[in-house]
Design a binder for these strands. Structure first.
Length: 467
RNA sequence: GGCCCGUUCGUCUAUCGGUUAGGACACCUGGUUUUCAACCAGGUAAGAGGGGUUCGACUCCCCUACGGGCUGCCA
């Protein structure tokens, strides 16, 4: 079962929260590695000192943790490895696969602008590429890769297929900046190589980069990893996901009350399929997941399906685990924590709550009977069921409930008889009961609630409502 | 502008030259029901457009349209 040669990684840049698309990328890497006994590594691409923040790193780690995506080993900071990156850049120099370029940023910018205005492709070709080192000035320089100028570079991508790039379309990219810090193009390759990454699964915005990165691998004589560039997620309107679509950060989904297992399931199925499999656990997903099941087209977010998937997972969840996740939700959503009594009652009630909710807010709403304390204040919809006639029936019922045995068969007997006596159907009786017991119109079965609450509490609520 | 990728029901997708184009969500109808949720039965709904190749194309090729990505001393 163990397949030690498989190593994947997730490598976000810490410039904000964990994006929902990033979460899915991480998920795919995690599923692929874990399903094959491989390793899933985490690297923070923090070489951009201007935009990287420790807060963002913390947010990314929180997001991954909430999603249940555990990584192997320590989190790698790309910035911490800058010396190694610089060493590799200099080794490329020695190997003759890179060169020093003394062109200034201003010169290059001016060149690009001029070329674009002339309607040409602004491909900058450094005059220093083949310069004699004896002519080098004593000025700051960058190290550029000496990329092949002819032929083509082929990316054999597990998702996109074979993608060909003409080498004369690619410039000699900078690998080491004039301040001696590495660029992303160099850092990713060096890190992926050093970390032993075998499969690079990432967003397809990196597809073109893969060609340039391949050149770095070749320049260093390193084995090129297996590529899998997955399409980005789009908003419901098919446009690139942006702020106006609402929730972008993974943590926002936690705050909205979606369970992590449901999120994982939904995100796995978004852009990936394995026959007709729709609802599955993460273990099942690991067993099924494969790179060629990933679609080539960007997928759109569909909240209805997300909710349905989450509902299925809530219904199947273990009571205690679900309650634990519910309490975590309460925390992040800024809602008051459960008292011990509420906790205990909710745990006993979970069996009749979990199959009627798709999200935690819904579950909480159905659980109102267990959370509220007397006096029960009915909401507007429930209040209409507590008219004079209903209150009379409730009053009569209260007397009978004080004596009977507190078990379902007996309660059924009493309630059915009460309905018959009042000349109404059971449904007509159930609504005032709900209003009195829970203050709501949508609740679990009245029997479940009465049994859970116990005789004293039930009778007290009924008599209060009866007035 | 150049290069690259994509396009099957409203949405996520199956299909890997021959199917009445299947499933799921959503929606509609009916049923069940103690409200909500769930559940059962049924239904509406798709190969972007145009050319080829082929006995036969959703599937292979080309063009167009639309969407996306890259084109930084950002990642």
């Amino acid at each position: 079962m163990s397949n030690p040669q498989i190593v994947t990684r997730f490598a976000p840049s810490p410039t904000g929260y964990l994006h929902i698309g990033g979460g899915r990328t991480a998920l795919f890497n995690w599923l692929f590695a874990r399903g094959r006994g491989g390793k899933f590594l985490l690297r923070i691409e923090d070489t951009d000192r201007e935009r990287s923040t420790p807060e963002a790193t913390a947010a990314i780690l929180r997001g991954l943790t909430w999603l249940g995506l555990d990584w192997d080993g320590d989190v790698v900071s790309q910035f911490d490895r800058k010396d190694r990156h610089a060493d590799v850049a200099h080794e490329m120099l020695t190997r003759g696969t890179a060169y020093k370029c003394f062109s200034t940023k201003e010169e290059i910018d001016a060149f690009r602008i001029a070329e674009e205005e002339a309607g040409r492709y602004p491909l900058f070709l450094s005059p220093w590429r083949d310069a004699d080192p004896s002519t080098y000035p004593d000025l700051p320089y960058v190290i550029r890769m000496k990329a092949p100028r002819t032929g083509e570079t082929i990316i054999d991508d597990k998702v996109q297929g074979k993608v060909t790039f003409r080498n004369d379309q690619l410039d000699d990219m900078i690998v080491l900046r004039s301040d001696l810090t590495p660029t992303y193009m160099l850092a990713v390759v060096v890190d992926d190589h050093d970390m032993g990454v075998t499969h690079v699964i990432r967003g397809d915005d990196h597809l073109a980069n893969a060609a340039r990165q391949t050149m770095v691998y070749q320049a260093m004589d390193w084995p090129v990893p297996v590529w899998a560039h997955i399409p980005l997620i789009h908003g419901p309107d098919g446009k690139k996901l942006s702020k106006r679509h609402g929730a972008l950060g993974v943590e926002e989904y936690q705050v909205m009350g979606y369970p992590a297992a449901g999120m994982r399931n939904y995100l796995t199925r978004l852009g990936w399929a394995h026959g007709d499999a729709e609802i599955f656990t993460s273990d099942e997903a690991m067993a099924m997941f494969d790179l060629d099941g990933i679609g080539r087209a960007p997928a759109r977010l569909d909240f209805k399906k997300l909710e349905h998937t989450c509902g299925q997972h809530i219904a199947k969840a273990d009571d205690a685990a679900l309650l634990r996740e519910l309490e975590a939700y309460l925390g992040v959503a800024g809602k008051p924590p459960l008292t011990q009594a509420q906790h205990d009652l909710l745990l006993r009630a979970m069996y009749c709550l979990k199959d009627r909710a798709k999200t935690f807010p819904e579950l909480l709403d159905k659980a109102e009977f267990a959370l509220a304390s007397r006096p029960i204040v009915p909401d507007a919809a429930a209040a209409v069921h507590l008219d004079a006639v209903s209150r009379g029936i409730l009053r009569a019922l209260t007397l009978q409930l004080q004596n009977g045995i507190w078990e379902k068969a007996e309660l059924e007997h009493i309630l059915t008889a009460a309905a018959t006596e009042a000349g109404i159907g059971f449904g007509k009786l159930a609504q005032p009961l709900r209003a009195a017991i829970a203050g709501r119109t949508a609740t679990p079965s009245v029997y479940d609630m009465m049994l859970l609450l116990g005789r004293d509490e039930t009778v007290a609520r009924l008599s209060e409502a009866a007035g």
